[in-house]
Each structure stands twice: as structure tokens, then as C-alpha cells.
């Protein structure tokens, strides 16, 4: 039986490095873009909202004077 040509099976050093570089680029480029995007938009303090998104009612003074039903 004839043994396979070892040069076809084993990757050359150059080929290996090229593949690794390509793989890194595929992962790193979008990641760097994502990191840069989020770096710019880190926020601790939010803007004070002006409009409440739910139903708004005037404060019920009668219920304010009574202890709340909630814990705490």
C-alpha cells in the first residue's frame, strides 16, 4: 500500500499562521467594533424622564395619610 504524501496532509507553518490570523480577524474585527460602540455609550446617570409611560393620576391625599399596604 502506498503511504499518502505527507506534504498534502500536514499544514505548512505559513499556512497555519495564515489561518490563525484569518480566524482572529473574523472574531476580533466585529468584537472591536462592538466594544468601541459600547465604550462610547456607558451611562450611570440617566436623563430625567418628562413623561410617564403609564396611566397618570393626581396624588390621592387621603391614601397618602394612611400606612402603605406594601412591605418596607
Amino acid at each position: 500500500m502506498q503511504s499518502p504524501d505527507i506534504r498534502r496532509v500536514v499544514m505548512s507553518r505559513r499556512g497555519f499562521l495564515l489561518r490563525i490570523t484569518a480566524l482572529c480577524a473574523v472574531i476580533a474585527v466585529p468584537m472591536a467594533r462592538w466594544i468601541r460602540q459600547t465604550e462610547d455609550t456607558r451611562v450611570v446617570q440617566a436623563l430625567r424622564g418628562r413623561y410617564y409611560p403609564g396611566p397618570v393620576r393626581p396624588l390621592d391625599q387621603e391614601s397618602v395619610s394612611r400606612p402603605g399596604k406594601w412591605a418596607g
Binding site: A46, R48, G49, P53, V64, S65, P67, W70
Partner: peptide, 14 residues
Amino acid sequence: LVAVTYGHPCTVHV
């Protein structure tokens, strides 16, 4: 980033 409940408590009690 907006704090949408600012100035709008849903419950106030003594």
C-alpha cells in the same frame, strides 16, 4: 438612557 419613572411615584404613604 432615560429614567422614565422620574417624578412619578406609584405609591406614597405615611
